[in-house]
Design a protein around this nucleic acid. Structure first.
Lengths: 216, 216
DNA sequence: GGCGTAGAAAAACGCATGTTTGAAACTGTC
DNA sequence: GACAGTTTCAAACATGCGTTTTTCTACGCC
């Protein structure tokens, strides 16, 4: 098999290493060494380490938002025809399906989720700004649809619950390997990612439909 | 007021900086500079940066586990007397109260949660091992009580749901500042930490009591 | 066939990092 | 008040980092 070109080799290696150790902890020398590529290649092709990080994200998020956008439009169109509202389950289902679809091609869901987690938790101010500016609009579209699907929730409450859920998903899927090892060791149950998503589904729905907190 | 001693000044400064930027992104020079302490002091008092990181955690986790242990024992004793089982809400309540109590003395819940989040997400293999070895037992005690409180759940299912919840809590509270800014900007609702914990409560309970996923 | 350009390779640059050193300053004790 | 032990300090050390520069190689084009 022919070796992929330099740019692809760098991206392939970088995303795995970033996902494993974080951005600051992964040096260009480690990346280029493992990718069997000259050190200067990163700066030549990407300009800087920062841009490499953004490129790694773009390679996931561009196809993701593209598909997600299409899926949401289609969902809206279908329900617009018969005038019904889109139920929450269907929205969550659509998001889950898209998240699973995109990295499936490279068997890298774990990497994708780890990267999302890192984008939130690692400092890297430039990343948050980049993601917000590039993909913020599509996410807003989604939250607007969720708003219509859960009209009984106050806006702020829905906002927080969405982030609770986001935390569950990112946290669980990004720490997947470690957790899976523990689960297998303690309960010998070996779960696949799709089984885990199945486990998440009722929990997420229940979280969104939980009663409002007591006012004390 | 007298300046705290060098060790305390280092710990106070380090925990804030670590929480803000992560471990790798915080240099000893930044810490010692801000703490108005000589650079060599860290290596003199702690031995290495690694040990400093562990010391920062120990200063939170030692009192936390100590209190948590006591609180659980007391809870168990109380219910052992009348032979009743400890309800799930009470267990979660106890944990939440203890988490809130410990850093309250220094108004640093945010820091505490950020640190917990970092312990999970930043590589720092030594940290995970250290925490597991030092505090793993107390956490096991807690999960055992949760097991008794939710006998209808299969062990593996409970395991995963606990981690879903852990994800929600750590993710939300560790990204608190950023999220709070958004929430305030978009919905002008300024939530306090205890209000957020109040919002989390019904969601967490609902998550644990959600129906089992469909088998497909 | 020579030329121009894009890419790869090797080396060096400048800088920030964690750590170590050795001398100075301080502290308590007899 | 001299001594031993501890803590502070400035300086240096070695290393690893991202980036830049320079040289070399390969390929398309009139």
């Amino acid at each position: 098999m022919a070796q992929p070109d330099t740019v692809t080799r760098i991206l392939d290696t970088a995303e795995v290493l970033f996902a494993e150790r974080g951005f600051a902890e992964t040096s260009l020398r480690t990346i280029t060494g493992k990718a069997k590529v000259n050190l200067a290649a990163v700066n030549y092709h990407f300009g800087s380490k920062k841009s490499l990080i953004q490129a790694v994200f773009a390679r996931y998020l561009d196809p993701f938002t593209e598909r997600f956008h299409r899926a949401l439009d289609e969902l809206e169109a279908r329900h617009a025809r018969d005038g019904s509202e889109i139920p929450l389950e269907e929205l969550l289902e659509t998001m889950a399906r898209t998240v699973l679809e995109v990295p499936a091609e490279r068997d890298s869901l774990k990497v994708f989720m780890r990267l999302l987690g890192l984008a939130y938790t690692q400092a890297q101010g430039h990343l948050r700004g980049y993601i917000q500016s590039q993909y913020g609009e599509d996410f807003s579209h989604f939250t607007e649809l969720v708003r219509r699907a859960t009209p009984e929730l106050p806006d702020a409450e829905r906002f927080w619950r969405l982030h609770f859920i986001l935390g569950s998903v990112i946290f669980t899927l990004s720490g997947l390997d470690a957790l899976r090892d523990i689960a297998e060791h303690d309960y010998d149950e070996r779960v696949s990612v799709s089984e885990l998503v199945q486990k998440l589904r009722p929990v997420v729905v229940a979280a969104m439909q939980a009663p409002m907190p007591d006012q004390r």
